[in-house]
Amino acid sequence: MTTGRPLPRDWGWRVLHSLWVLPSLLCFGFTTWMGFLYIGIRTRHRVWLMSAFAHFAGAVLLITLIIVSGPTKSEIDSGAAQRTATQEMFNNFGAACLFVLWLAGVVHSLIVLPQFWRALDQRQAPPPMAPYPGQPAPTWPPGHTGPKPWPNSDYTPAPQPITPVPPSAPTVHWPDGGTNPHR
């Protein structure tokens, strides 16, 4: 979902908040779910949490296929029994699933990345500060509406009146009944 808004912040911020993509790139799809779990929790976005579950289920499927695919080539060379036809089928299917899951995880992560940047930038926008007397109230940067407590929420906080309270000096009562002994 492209909103047409410009990408947030500078390149350093974007690189820092793109590190969650590394597990999908480096670990053959086995740890893609960790990145989606991170961004789902960070932004409270249910779809990304469900994506984390789907990628986790794919990783469990791959591990299961590795376990049932029988001995490896090096184990066969060192004297283990040959693979059966079923084990060979699981081995080939597992290799295909590994490639598909890895490629799908990388593509999915790269598609979601700009959406995560925008969601995170919206949540991290600093709130406006209360103005001093005689100063205009600060405004949000263009394109920002301020942080929301929960995505897709109808909650809006009640407006709070800003009334500065002047500091008052404590009244000191001296034993002779006066309030200022130096008068």
Rank of each mutant, 00 (worst) to 15 (best):
M1Y: 14
M1Q: 12
G4F: 15
P6I: 06
P6Q: 07
P8V: 03
W11A: 15
W11N: 12
W13A: 06
W13K: 09
H17D: 04
H17A: 10
H17I: 09
W20A: 11
P23S: 08
L25H: 12
C27L: 10
F28C: 11
F30W: 00
T32D: 04
W33V: 04
W33C: 05
M34R: 00
G35V: 06
G40V: 01
I41V: 09
R42M: 14
T43P: 01
T43Y: 09
R44H: 13
R44M: 10
R46E: 14
W48M: 05
L49P: 01
S51Q: 10
A52Y: 00
F53E: 01
F53P: 02
F53R: 10
A54N: 11
A54V: 06
F56M: 13
A57Y: 01
A59W: 01
V60K: 02
L61R: 01
L61V: 10
L62S: 05
I63Q: 10
I63N: 07
T64P: 02
T64R: 08
I66C: 07
I67V: 08
V68N: 00
T72M: 07
K73I: 03
S74P: 00
E75W: 06
I76D: 07
D77F: 02
S78M: 00
A80M: 11
Q82P: 11
Q82A: 14
T84E: 03
A85V: 04
E88W: 00
M89Y: 05
M89I: 03
M89W: 11
M89L: 13
N91I: 00
N92P: 03
F93K: 02
G94L: 05
G94P: 03
C97W: 06
F99A: 09
L101K: 01
W102K: 03
L103W: 10
L103C: 08
V107M: 09
S109G: 13
I111D: 11
I111G: 07
V112C: 09
V112L: 07
V112H: 09
L113C: 03
P114G: 09
R118I: 10
L120N: 15
D121W: 01
M129K: 15
M129D: 12
A130I: 12
Y132G: 12
G134R: 02
T139Q: 11
T145S: 10
T145C: 11
P147K: 12
P151S: 08
P151K: 14
N152C: 10
D154F: 07
Y155I: 12
Y155F: 15
A158M: 08
A158R: 14
P161H: 03
A169E: 14
A169R: 15
A169K: 13
T171N: 04
W174C: 11
P175F: 14
D176Q: 08
D176I: 03
D176T: 06
G177Q: 02
N180T: 12
H182C: 08
R183S: 13
